[in-house]
Amino acid sequence: MDDLRSRLITGFTWRSDPPVWPATRTYYADYSAWWRDSAVLAQIGPALAGLFRDMQPTVVLGTESHGFLLGPLVALHLGVGFAAVRKEPERGSHDEVWLVRRTPPDYRDRHLDLAVRRSVLRSGDRVLFVDEWAATGGQALACRQLVEDAGARWTGAAVVVDALESSADRRALGLRGLLHVRDLNRR
């Protein structure tokens, strides 16, 4: 785990857009180097799964896009399936049943519609949500509602970086992270 933490921190950079005004600068997280590092890819699924080893999930849930990468890595380690949550979904046919929820405002102050096919979330499932970053928790909160809509049980949220501002949301989501945002000091 120490090797993974070190690689995650080393492979992370705060980037900034050019300032609009001299005192205005917008910072954003760049973790693209994580996906290039084969050791990170090999270790991150087991590490995220390990945050919830005691919960015995039956399915892993992840949102596009990074949840689609991390979710299967975690599911593979746990020996369970993966359920994909689409953002702003378009139905491929009219015979598909989708569960849909709208997020509270995200870090860009957007509301998104999140949807999962009803056939991949089953009543009685124990669902582990996986993503790379939690800032407002909006997507995880909407996914928790999708899980409840399906009659499944939310076991928690495993993220690479916990940047959640609300302790109440952290508790409600059962959120656990490999890193906290304070571990990624601005350089």
Rank of each mutant, 00 (worst) to 15 (best):
R101M: 10
L141F: 02
Q56P: 07
G137W: 04
R144Q: 15
L61R: 01
A84C: 10
D113P: 01
D95A: 12
A75I: 12
D106T: 05
E90D: 08
L141A: 13
V159W: 00
A157L: 10
H66D: 14
C143H: 07
R53C: 08
G92I: 06
E132V: 09
E165H: 11
G124L: 12
R110H: 13
R53M: 09
E132P: 10
W98S: 00
V160S: 00
V74D: 07
K87I: 11
D113R: 08
L146K: 01
E132M: 08
V116R: 06
Y107L: 11
R122M: 14
V60R: 00
G79C: 14
A84P: 15
L99I: 06
L51D: 03
P57D: 07
R144I: 04
F82S: 05
T58M: 11
V60T: 03
A134C: 12
R126Q: 12
A115Q: 11
V120C: 07
W98V: 02
R153P: 01
H111D: 08
R117V: 07
A140N: 02
G45Q: 04
G138W: 06
S65V: 14
P105Q: 05
G50C: 03
V59A: 11
A134V: 11
V80D: 08
D106F: 03
G156F: 00
D162A: 05
Q145K: 11
G92L: 13
L128M: 13
L114Q: 09
Q56D: 15
A134R: 03
C143M: 15
